[in-house]
């Protein structure tokens, strides 16, 4: 079986700044991987590399067995990768929670087709799992930060991905909401069998859930712990 994600000697430059200089990471199917590192160590950059948004000038990125540098239809591969961003959307664009959640299906539905009853059913199931079903008709910008983060999580869930990328999903949450979100994430990970990559500052979550922990320092990665 191939790895879900394999980064081999990845080097990334942003402008003139060498952000990643020789990163090696392996994630097998169903593994929960955590990436830790100081601010500016390149954790978010690394997630963008996995998602194909940033291309390395040196090294190789394999996602679900495909070499991203040779992948002609990157947007098709992205349908298998769900991202929960660090920030919640702060604009006041008028959109209801259910609409923001079902967006996760749009990539798989394809152009010129509308979501059908099965897609809506999945969206409502996802909202139920993360506990925002009661807000489904509310505007997203009326929700709190934690609730908006759950909208992102439900959207990722409804995408039915093979890989889940979590970019510091608890940064702006209070301790209680953070605990709730992380419990939800981990139970979804176990139940759905994603390969999950979590970028986080908080050692509590990392220790508790991770199969492997990588430390990013000075642009290089080190495997610091592996669960036996």
């Amino acid at each position: 079986m191939h790895h879900s994600i394999e980064l081999i000697d990845v080097h990334i430059k942003l402008g003139n700044l060498l952000v990643l200089q020789g990163v090696n990471i392996e994630a097998k199917p169903y593994e929960f991987i955590s990436i830790v590192g100081a601010n500016g160590s390149g954790k978010t950059t690394l997630l963008k590399v996995v998602n194909g948004i940033l291309k390395p000038f040196k090294g190789k990125v394999l996602v679900l067995g495909q070499d991203l540098s040779l992948c002609k239809k990157l947007h098709n591969l992205r349908k298998e990768i769900a991202v929960v961003p660090q920030r919640s959307n702060s604009n006041r664009f008028p959109i209801r929670v259910e609409e923001a959640v079902i967006m996760g299906r749009y990539g798989k539905i394809g152009l010129l087709r509308n979501p059908d009853s099965k897609d809506w059913k999945k969206a409502y199931e996802a909202m139920e799992i993360v506990g925002i079903k009661e807000f489904s008709k509310k505007s997203v910008h009326e929700l709190s930060g934690g609730e908006q983060q759950k909208v992102s999580l439900a959207r990722a869930l409804v995408q039915e991905p093979s890989i889940l990328l979590l970019d510091e999903p608890t940064t702006y949450l209070d301790q209680e909401s953070a605990l709730e979100i992380m419990k939800t994430i981990y139970s979804i990970h176990c139940e759905k069998g994603f390969t999950t990559i979590l970028v986080s500052h908080d050692p509590y979550w990392i220790e508790q859930y991770s199969d492997k922990i990588y430390l990013l320092k000075e642009g290089k990665s080190n495997l610091v712990r592996k669960k036996e």
């Binding site: 948004i53 349908k79 749009y106 152009l111």
Partner: peptide
């Protein structure tokens, strides 16, 4: 009319549109 759902995603958040595999 044809691209309503894609437009909705893009206007809400362009990064989400990229992440879920929309053109």
């Amino acid at each position: 009319l044809l691209f309503f759902k894609e437009i909705q995603t893009m206007l809400y958040d362009r990064e989400i549109a990229i992440n879920i595999g929309l053109p």
